[in-house]
Nucleic acid binder design. Structure first.
Lengths: 246, 246
DNA sequence: CGCTAAATTGAGGTAGTTCAACCAAAGTGG
DNA sequence: CCACTTTGGTTGAACTACCTCAATTTAGCG
């Protein structure tokens, strides 16, 4: 296989967590021209109102999409890890209706819209797969809405931790039930519609109940079953290829 | 034009609110085989876990997608009006991760997945347009997340009313600033993550402030500018073709 | 007219917020 | 390698936006 851009393997790994890829499709992905970039933490990649002409692949690191209210309150809309293309929607929605930024130092790879369009033209199944990816994105939004709108803080946090664990596991960044969780409590709060203070207290509850342990950035899930129950977590909405037997 | 299924005009009108359609594309849409159905209010069309083989076009009426928590709390995820295909995502996500139901008596038209796939195959631009539609869907989810997570009840309700007005206007179901709003306060609450009682009180506030009047199902926007301000409403996220000069 | 669903009101409670302080860990520059 | 600074985590206390429950009124409809 003529791998010109090995960074694309992150993308391939992620897409394969969603659907199988043919050899020729992988080869075509690897031939995608990339513009590489290394960024610090807390850097904006795109801002609301921007009109991008390329998409951003997260090769390594942690990114999030977010919106800021007129009163300066931030809502994080999604987290993104290795293999994700958080702004894939910009292929068909010209103007960004939200911002995209890094949470930790990250490696990014930018792909021209034109190159993606011609890739999908020559490989329609990849086009469907990208569409499917944006649909899964939307499914996660829906699940977050349920959490923010109708679940207690305790349940919400448990749910998010479950989701992160499963997503990281799907791209093999997890060994056993231990994750590197590079997200501050303030960021968790912004994602869940909670204050930092309350996130802190609920995390203590989760620890007190023996569901997790949290030292520095290391999250260890001590009781996966009870954490799933607490968060009412059912991974079906992630539409992964192999239902993870966690 | 060989209009076999005039119900499709609702779909065409809606798609044209998003992007222009070629004559041949409209003709192809009109040739789509439809299975028509008339339903009462509060009927489930699809339930979580279902594996549909057709999509549901709302010809007339009002539908919503929703999820129910283990504790029996409902979160409404989206409202759908004439021309919408609320379960378009089922083309690529086999298992429903939420339910779909009517809010009032409605006319529905079901389209086989196969027919949609071959339509998109022969008219790739329509495929892109459907994709775009699901992306706008996701943009609305994002906006709702911001509201539920970070805005006050007052602001949230104002925002939702703005959104409904603009969406109805885009498919020409609104004259001036008066809408038929066939949604109960309980349903508004389920959409916004609020209790019925609180929705009621905030609606009174909005009336007291002279922003709206609400008699029965008739919503009249008395002060569009102040309602927009109250809801921090910017229609950009709806990605409509013509930015409505409301 | 009677029935039912929806809207409205009151009162009391609580899950979450805000503010402000303090502590701990992790860099960073000298 | 240590003092210094910064960032993130933790705690307490006061507050409030919103919830729950339960009753009452109003509106729609056969």
């Amino acid at each position: 296989m003529d791998a010109i851009h090995p960074q694309t393997t992150a993308l391939i790994r992620k897409l394969e967590s969603i659907a199988p890829l043919a050899l020729e499709e992988k080869a075509a992905l690897l031939r995608l021209p990339l513009r590489l970039k290394t960024t610090a933490a807390d850097q904006d990649i795109l801002r609301e109102g921007d009109v991008p002409s390329e998409c951003c692949l997260v090769v390594e690191g942690f990114a999030c999409r977010y919106n800021v209210t007129a009163q300066g309150k931030r809502q994080i809309l999604s987290f993104h890890i290795s293999g994700d293309i958080p702004d894939l929607q910009s292929l068909h929605l010209k103007v960004m209706d939200h911002s995209l930024g890094t949470l930790i130092p990250s490696k990014l790879a930018f792909i021209q819209h034109d190159d993606l369009h011609s890739l999908m033209h020559s490989h329609p199944r990849l086009g469907d797969l990208f569409w499917r990816d944006t649909l899964i994105d939307a499914a996660v939004f829906r699940q977050w809405m349920v959490g923010i709108g109708r679940r207690s803080a305790y349940s919400r946090i448990a749910h998010l931790l479950c989701e992160l664990l499963v997503k990281l596991r799907a791209v093999e960044l997890v060994e056993d039930h231990v994750v590197n969780l590079p997200v501050t409590q303030a960021e968790l709060g912004d994602a869940l519609g909670l204050s930092t203070v309350h996130v802190n207290r609920v995390l203590q509850d989760l620890r007190g109940a023996g569901l997790i342990s949290l030292h520095g950035k290391t999250l260890r899930v001590l009781d996966w079953d009870r954490l799933k129950t607490a968060g009412e977590f059912d991974p079906a909405y992630l539409h992964l290829r192999k239902r993870d037997a966690l």
